[in-house]
Amino acid sequence: MSLATRERTQTPAPAGGLELWTWFFMRISGIVLVFLVLGHFTIVHLLGEGVDRVNFAFVAGRWSSPLWQTWDWTMLTLGLIHGANGLRVVIDDYVRRDGLRAALKSALYVASLIFLLLGTLIIVAFDPAKGS
């Protein structure tokens, strides 16, 4: 069964070029995101009072620490690129009309870039004193 099973179950790595790099990126970023996202979810959503304690002061407290700023920014960046690339592949697979496919992917890239800039801006430039 071995060879047939392998052909059926293994995702073939692309031969080279950009597709190989995105293939590799998905796997590496995926491993990193498992720890970042599950850690984030456990701390913010599961422990203590969960989302009940999430408010302005909670966020301000977390982002006063470079550790959580770095954590959140890495998670934001890797998550957005990983997700956008995943949706790119899905769009390529299901949208057959060339024009529509190009339009959807362009919209995806623009939206992802805007969200990346917005998220980065808020993590880096956030000033807790402004609120108090």
């Binding site: 002061a57 966020v59 997700g83 969200f115 917005l118 998220g119 808020i122 402004k130 609120g131």
Partner: peptide, 23 residues
């Protein structure tokens, strides 16, 4: 699940960004 989580991520970035408007 991938597409679902990505859609939530977009919403989550927006709601978190509102922290910039104050408490």
């Amino acid at each position: 699940t991938g597409v679902g989580v990505l859609l939530f991520l977009f919403a989550h970035i927006l709601d978190t960004a509102l922290v910039g408007f104050g408490p």
